[in-house]
């Protein structure tokens, strides 16, 4: 008899577990993440118009700014990390395309969130998993994938620069990973300036500011007059990737 009771309770628990999705649903809601690409905290960016002076005294105008965001995670005040489904977690942020600047994530468990984390670029150690291959059409349309190598372009930053008393020249910065030799994927965790309360029935929002002056002026300084074409550049690409780690701030 004891055995039967045991068996019953075992199967009962299997029953309950196996149908978990039907019952006992964790309450979720939606979160809107908006990317605000700026020169700095104090200066807005308008493509083709805004001029800023970098630390090498070069006047820089941005004509194109795109980057890939992936693997978004949100951390609650109790330390719980919610990982947004990786297959749905690849995005191109394109300053020229307003609709690309806001990401709407649903299925976020209700709670109080204190940090946001995301990847800049694509984690190539994950190849070919997690729906990464289904990001190809999006990346292709945004021209964020190379066609001579099987790899994503993590950031495109293009424009013109004018050294003090010099003449205007174009600059092109395209950074991705270089085969298996150089992994330029970065993952950042940003504290939220204010705790984000995710409640059922309302959409919570986060503003992520990107200070693009830091692409070439942060941990590493790049003088465009010396290097105005950074594409598959094994010296400068990793330096820029490191700079990207300090480009973002969450409000």
């Amino acid at each position: 008899m004891k055995k039967i009771v045991y068996l019953f309770s075992l199967s009962l628990s299997i029953l309950v577990l196996s149908c978990n999705s039907d019952a006992d649903v964790i309450e979720t809601s939606t979160v809107e993440i908006t990317f605000d690409n700026r020169i700095s905290a104090n200066q807005n960016l308008t493509l083709g118009t805004t001029v800023y002076v970098n630390q090498n005294n070069e006047s820089v105008v941005t004509n194109e700014l795109k980057y890939i965001i992936s693997n978004i995670q949100l951390t609650q005040d109790n330390g719980t990390i919610f990982e947004y489904p990786k297959a749905d977690s690849y995005f191109v942020i394109n300053e020229a395309d307003l609709s690309s600047l806001t990401l709407n994530l649903d299925g976020i468990p209700v709670g109080n969130y204190t940090h946001i984390s995301f990847g800049i670029g694509v984690d190539q150690s994950e190849y070919p998993l997690d729906g990464m291959l289904n990001f190809i059409p999006t990346a292709e349309e945004a021209q964020m994938i190379w066609n001579w190598a099987a790899g994503y372009i993590f950031i495109k930053f293009e424009g013109t620069f004018t050294p003090q008393g010099g003449t205007e020249s174009p600059f092109v910065i395209h950074v991705g990973s270089h085969g298996q030799n150089l992994d330029n994927y970065k993952f950042v965790t940003l504290p939220l300036a204010n705790t984000m309360n995710v409640n059922a029935g309302t959409t919570a929002s986060v503003m992520v500011e990107a200070y693009i002056e830091r692409i070439i002026d942060a941990t590493n300084q790049i003088k465009l007059e010396d290097t105005n074409n950074i594409q598959v550049d094994p010296v400068n690409a990793p330096r820029i990737a490191t700079n990207l780690e300090s480009m973002f701030s969450a409000q």
Binding site: Q124, Y127, P128, L133, I136, I145, N147, W148, A149, A150, G151, G179, Q180
Partner: peptide, 10 residues
Amino acid sequence: AAIHLDMQPI
């Protein structure tokens, strides 16, 4: 230029 067979045809 391709580090995985699944990526090569791109």
